[in-house]
């Protein structure tokens, strides 16, 4: 079983975590076109590579960011969303 490092609770078994999808910046609803908005809502990139992902340590409810290489399933680093200073 895979181990994931929660920034608050440390390394824990993957069964304690829930995946929350890729972190994708939301376009400004006020200015974006219908087409761009639809692409944001419905399209996902399946290209293997390093992705920023939402993960939740379910026992404690901590949401954090994992940088994961989906080609090798290696997690490069995890950190709290606010600590990242980016969206």
């Amino acid at each position: 079983m895979k181990i994931l490092v929660c920034p608050i609770n440390g390394p824990r078994s993957i069964s304690e975590f829930a995946y929350g999808g890729e972190i994708r910046p939301m376009p400004d609803p006020a200015t974006t076109s219908d087409g761009d908005w639809a692409r944001y809502v419905f399209n996902r990139s399946g290209v293997a590579g390093v992705k920023l992902e939402w993960w939740c340590h379910t026992a404690s409810g901590v949401w954090f960011v994992a940088e994961r290489d989906t080609a090798t399933d290696t997690v490069l680093q995890t950190y709290l969303y606010d600590a990242a200073g980016r969206s």
Partner: peptide, 12 residues
């Protein structure tokens, strides 16, 4: 409830 937590985090 879990999603509420994610949303609050996203929206800071």
């Amino acid at each position: 409830f879990r999603e509420f937590g994610r949303l609050a985090t996203t929206w800071r």
